[in-house]
Structure formats: structure tokens, C-alpha cells
Computed example of a mutant assay.
Amino acid sequence: MFNLIVSGGGWEPHRDSFGSGRVLEYTDAAIAQRFMPNKVLDINAVAKLPTLFMSETQGAGNQVAYVGTITQLKLSGTDFQIEYAVDPAIRPIPNSSLLRMARELGIEEFEFSRTHWAIKDADLYKALLRNLYSDLPTPKVFQLSPEPANNRMVSAMMPFSAGFDGVYAALGAAAEAVGKKCKRADDIWNHDAIIQDVVSLICKSSVVICDLTGKNANVFYEAGIAHSLGKDVILITQSADDVPFDLRHLRYIQYLNNGEGLQQLTAKVTDRLETLAAGR
């Protein structure tokens, strides 16, 4: 089951209000009785359901909906005050896409143009997965790992050279300082093609550190993959001149490849990893 809340005026970020007179419209009678016994909304019960926050389809019909959860709900006068969080892992969904899967979601076409709150007896996430995510572009030269990312894994993308062994050790120390483990592709051999090991490592990592030193084409390619997969990426380099033009708007850590410089690199990467962990 899921909440379908359709607003005529769009949705303000994180909090909004909704008129109590239209709560549980177009909801099966048995479901309405379950969640609104004696015509009093069971706030705790509805807050546990995933929610589709939709705007009424108007004009050109380019409105989008968001999937999230209700974090706080209270009745104030004749309106419910809603605080909510949008799921960052689910991209905004055009109303036109929802219309194509309306039958599967139990939504009537007229509901797209009426402000109301309904509870639908359908699996929202399964419908979205089947209709919106099964047709995503599929890479042809490697496969993305189906395994979820490990929050304790950090990967290092750098040139395969003994000159970077000290850098790798410094990154490993930074990862250990925050309770994580750092790996690079030459630590593993699970596939015949090295690019598959690299991509699998990126997929499984919570953070990807890319050393741009020397303008290494492989590292640039791997940084692009990590960015495309939505990973948190930490860019490091020994020379600012090695940062490509398309990445110069992003912050990076510059370091010296000597004892003191690597100690400073460990400290700066540790700070960044702690910041990223705090923001999750």
C-alpha cells in the first residue's frame, strides 16, 4: 500500500499543508475504515506507508511527482501539516509516466487532476521498478554489480605504478581512521577482464577516490563511471595542471608525494570521509 497525495499547487520543500476534507478520497472502503476508523485519521499508520507526492496535471502536463515518506503529521484546524522526506535514490517521476502505469497503481485517470489524498492497495516500489528502471541504459563493455554498496568500503583509482604505493598506503590509513577499508583493482581478481573488476569495485564502494596525477586516461575513465553511478568521489592530485577542464569546478585535494605530504593527504582525506559519512 502507499499514500497518494495530489496537490493542486505543487509541493513546498520538506513541509506543506493539506485540507482534511479530501483525505482518503477514492480509497477502498475497507482500507479507509482501517486507516480512518470513526472518521479519525490514524496518523501513525499512514506515516508508515511510502508516499507518492504528486502535483495535479495542468497545462502542458510537465508536472513531476516524488516518492518519499511522511516524517511528521498533525492536524491544525482544518488542515493537516505534513513534514516529509523525499527518497534521493528515486528520481522525480513525470506525471505522464505515472499515467502509463496508473492501472497497476490503482489510480483513476481523473485523479491526476484533482487534489486529494488516497491510499492505494498496490506495491509502489515494484511498479516503479518494473516500469521506470527496467529500461535504463545497459553498458555493453562491462556489467554493473547487482550487489548493494558496502558503506565500509572505499576504492582507490590510480595508475598501476610502484610510485603510488605510498599514496595508496596513505589512503588506506585514512579509510581505517573512519572504520572503513580501502581497496584498488589490483587487490582483486574475480573476472578475466580487469575493467569488470574495476567497475565491480566501484559499484560496491561507498566512496571512490580518484588520483588524477599524470593525467592517466584509465583514472579519468573510472572517475566518469563513478560520477555516472552517483558515487561520492574524492579527487586528489599532485599537480593542479593534471585536473581536466571538465572537473576543475569540483574541489580536489592537492598533495606532495613525500613523507610529510602523504601524512597531510591522510588527514585531509580522513576529514572528507568523516564529512561524507555524517551527511548520509
Rank of each mutant, 00 (worst) to 15 (best):
E104P: 07
W117K: 08
G259M: 08
A174M: 06
A60C: 05
W189G: 09
S200N: 12
Y221W: 13
Q81I: 15
H14K: 06
S239Y: 14
I202Q: 05
A156N: 03
H249S: 13
T57D: 13
V6A: 05
N257V: 02
K74M: 14
Q81V: 15
F110Q: 14
L99K: 15
S97L: 11
L144I: 09
G279Q: 15
E25Y: 11
S17H: 13
F142P: 14
F2D: 11
T57S: 15
G224T: 02
P244H: 05
M101R: 04
L276K: 09
R103G: 08
A277Q: 14
V6Q: 05
C210Q: 02
R251V: 07
N190T: 13
E56R: 09
A226Y: 15
D241I: 10
V23E: 07
E222R: 05
V233W: 02
R114D: 06
I5D: 07
K48Q: 15
S7Y: 03
G163N: 10
P159S: 13
V67C: 08
A174K: 05
Q196A: 00
N131W: 10
V154N: 01
D242A: 07
S113F: 03
N258S: 06
F35E: 00
V64C: 11
V86F: 10
A102S: 14
I195T: 08
A278D: 07
I43E: 15
E83P: 07
L250C: 08
R280W: 03
M1A: 08
V23K: 07
H227P: 04
H14V: 04
G279P: 01
D79R: 15
S155D: 11
I253T: 11
D211C: 01
G8H: 04
L136Q: 14
P50Q: 06
C182Q: 04
V233D: 11
V154I: 12
K181M: 02
A45E: 15
K126R: 14
M54S: 13
D135F: 09
G172C: 07
S206F: 02
D79L: 12
T270N: 05
P94A: 08
A122G: 04
P94L: 08
A156R: 02
A169M: 07
Q72V: 00
V86Y: 11
L24F: 09
P13H: 12
V46K: 02
G68W: 11
A85D: 12
F2E: 10
D16A: 14
D16G: 06
R248C: 05
Y66H: 15
K215T: 13
K204S: 02
I225H: 00
V46L: 00
T138V: 15
M158Q: 11
V23H: 05
S97F: 09
R251L: 06
L201N: 01
A177I: 01
A177L: 01
A85S: 14
L265N: 06
V154S: 01
A30E: 10
S161F: 13
A277R: 10
A89K: 12
R280F: 02
D241M: 10
Q33M: 10
A32H: 07
I5T: 06
K215Q: 11
